[in-house]
Design a protein around this nucleic acid. Structure first.
Ligand code: MN
Ligand code: MN
Ligand code: ZN
Ligand code: ZN
Lengths: 150, 150
DNA sequence: ATTGCGGATGCAATTTTGTTGCATTAGTGC
DNA sequence: GCACTAATGCAACAAAATTGCATCCGCAAT
């Protein structure tokens, strides 16, 4: 059993959601609160189970998927596949611009860590090619998973 | 600018399988050959498609899953979830031909093209982190697909 | 070369994880 | 409160991976 984090004030969560230009809904507030309270990246199933124990009405499975993806697109959370290939979500550090640096994905726990390096420049393409998109996947093990592995 | 091809001697593959104490079957030989010829870690679906174009009889989907897992347990291949949460397999004895440059994947035809640019340098990691691997995914359209699209 | 054993395969069914379409609900600005 | 439409709930779908089991075939012994 891992240690629990401090709960984030509900007001902070609501204003974070509003600042992202979206409506403040129970699903978003509760999902983000769950992520901020978690001590490690959580799968969709884990978050669903956590929210199910909360006495509030249940949140639909698909809605939770969409809320989690929205949190990521809003920069409020990170999404990364763990060793089993299952997505894990974690709360992003608030007030940080994540576009200017690359991220490290822990293949053990699915955690996402901000690095200092900037994204690599687009490579030169031969004539006629059209660049669609680029993604740098940096993976390895975080200190905690390195210790747990040895 | 055409998709690459680089084979590993069949004898090497057969003896590698035999040395692992298992039977030499078409599925194992062809799967390992495909992995060794590949320029980057391949998904199950990609390997399946590669083998399907080989004129030999098709290999069952489940058999391929089992063969790939066996190759890993025998130490002949590695398995890791990519950023999308899909498992990718790579030969343990890597194909060094493609280590020195990055690759471009056409979203139209699925072709892979070798570029001249070297892979980006490994970013500096905070203390305690262990780098596992890096993958630069460059997507877009090849000249033929660009023309066909317009 | 034949035979027999059991590892390996093929096929169907199932599970897990994640997505799409669409009608209905509810958060927000007025 | 009212209107607008983002967000939700539900059902269906899809992709990726696994399980069970009958059959097959690689290969060693004969
Ligand atoms: Mn970041
Ligand atoms: Mn999956
Ligand atoms: Zn980790
Ligand atoms: Zn193309």
């Amino acid at each position: 059993m891992a240690p629990m984090k401090n709960a984030s004030p509900v007001g902070d969560i609501q204003s974070a959601i509003r600042a992202a230009g979206a409506r403040v809904t129970p699903a978003r507030v509760r999902a983000l609160a769950a992520l901020r309270a978690a001590s490690s990246p959580q799968t969709h199933a884990e978050i669903e189970e956590t929210l199910a124990q909360e006495a509030h009405p249940a949140i639909d499975r698909v809605t939770l998927y969409r809320v989690l993806d929205w949190l990521c697109s809003a920069g409020l959370a990170h999404k990364a596949a763990d060793a089993r290939g299952v997505f894990r979500f974690s709360a992003a550090q608030p007030n940080v611009e994540h576009a200017g640096h690359v991220h490290f994905r822990c293949t053990g726990c699915g955690g996402v860590f901000c690095l200092k390096s900037p994204p690599p420049p687009a490579p030169a393409l031969p004539r006629g090619f059209r660049l669609g998109g680029m993604a740098l996947d940096i993976r390895g093990e975080c200190p905690r998973c390195v210790r747990a592995h040895s």
